[in-house]
Simulated scan of single mutants.
Amino acid sequence: MTTATRDRTRTLAIDATGLTKSYGDKKVLDGIDLRIPEGTVFALLGPNGAGKTTTVQILSTLITADAGRAEIAGHDLTGAADGVRRSIGVTGQFAAVDNLLTARENLILMADLHHLGRREGRRRADDLLARFDLTEVAHTSVVTFSGGMRRKLDLAMTLVGDPRVIFLDEPTTGLDPRSRRIMWEIIRDLVADRGVTILLTTQYLDEADELADRIAVLDHGTLIAEGTADELKRRIPGAHIRLRFADVHRLDAAADLFRATSRNDEALTLNIPCDPGIPTLRAILDALDTASIPAEELTVHTPDLDDVFLTLTGRPQVDHVPDSRKENPR
């Protein structure tokens, strides 16, 4: 069974159709559809102003759509908004922690807001401190925490209510590479161990590549592409196999053998445009072997998500302008 087939048979955690939102004459969302199966990570990519945060705000009941419908964890977005709120958690771009409290006190505060009993709230707080490797700093004021520790605590606070769907709005912005990878592992574990569904917006294309089961590209309020990372990459031209040879004579012989190629005489390399699958690789190696032309090195080059983003949106990277006005609901 293919991944697409498995996804169609899963219950949808998020099922949205025709979401539209305008502010005055500016249309921020132009009728987008989202169908996200339970227990998956879905990444929403797009330039600054594409509508990513607006999408999260609508789906998390912070603002209402002008048109369209959605169900989150089986609850209608407009008819059962309280049910939606009980089922979700939201972690925004900026850590929403209280610097005057300790890590444990922040978690207990969230437990109180969720109306958990005293004993259950403290048990859940201690469990989350252990899960996020924060037990040693449980009684330390958050003001002393590093950015990575604050982000871990922020996500832990989101989990106090045991949400089935989590919206992560650029969760690793500003983190160093090590802290980012720790957050990635936490996100993977949430999905694998607890079956949580995650809608992730990110400015880091490698983050979407690493984490997401499916990726959608949003631009000017419209979904312009959706698929797995590999499916999106295959839509973009530029895949090729590069051969490197020991001397120019072998390079010449290979260039004669493979006509539709480009060469670099200084690097002694030959680029063969193709779909670099196993059959193609085998055919190239067989042709070289038959012609007795040994290659020193063979490398496969495929488009990455940066190429996808540039081609689809016409922009070289996800523009990012921090917006201190973003809300960070739980």
Rank of each mutant, 00 (worst) to 15 (best):
A96D: 00
L268T: 06
Q57A: 14
D304F: 01
L12P: 11
R263N: 02
F132N: 04
T61G: 13
F258Y: 03
R10Y: 04
L113T: 12
G174L: 05
T140S: 13
H240A: 09
T64R: 14
T269G: 05
I293C: 01
E226I: 06
R124H: 14
T228L: 02
S324P: 15
D206I: 01
G39P: 12
R124T: 15
D112R: 15
D252R: 06
I88P: 01
V308R: 02
V28Q: 03
T269A: 06
L101P: 03
T11P: 15
D306E: 14
L44H: 06
G92V: 00
D133T: 08
A260Y: 10
K233R: 14
L128S: 06
T91M: 09
G174T: 07
D82M: 03
L129D: 05
D126E: 15
I198F: 10
M157V: 04
V191D: 10
L168A: 03
D162E: 14
P37V: 01
R150W: 01
I36M: 10
E327W: 00
D286R: 13
G46F: 06
D275H: 12
T144M: 09
L29C: 08
A225H: 05
G227P: 11
N264H: 11
P163Y: 00
Q57I: 02
P163F: 00
L199D: 10
D98I: 00
K27Y: 00
G161L: 02
A138F: 10
A287E: 11
N264V: 05
N264C: 08
L243Q: 04
A229S: 15
P276D: 07
E266C: 07
G147K: 06
H301F: 02
L159T: 07
A156N: 02
H320R: 14
N271L: 09
G227H: 03
H75Y: 11
A65M: 09
D265G: 06
D176G: 12
A287Q: 12
G161N: 10
E136Y: 04
L312S: 11
R235L: 09
L268I: 08
I236Q: 03
I293Q: 01
T202N: 08
T222K: 05
R178D: 14
E38N: 11
T53G: 14
L29K: 07
N48P: 15
E170D: 08
L12M: 14
F245G: 05
I278Q: 14
D33E: 11
P276Y: 03
E226Y: 01
A70K: 08
L29S: 08
L59E: 11
T78D: 08
E231F: 04
L59A: 13
V300Q: 01
Q57K: 15
E170Y: 02
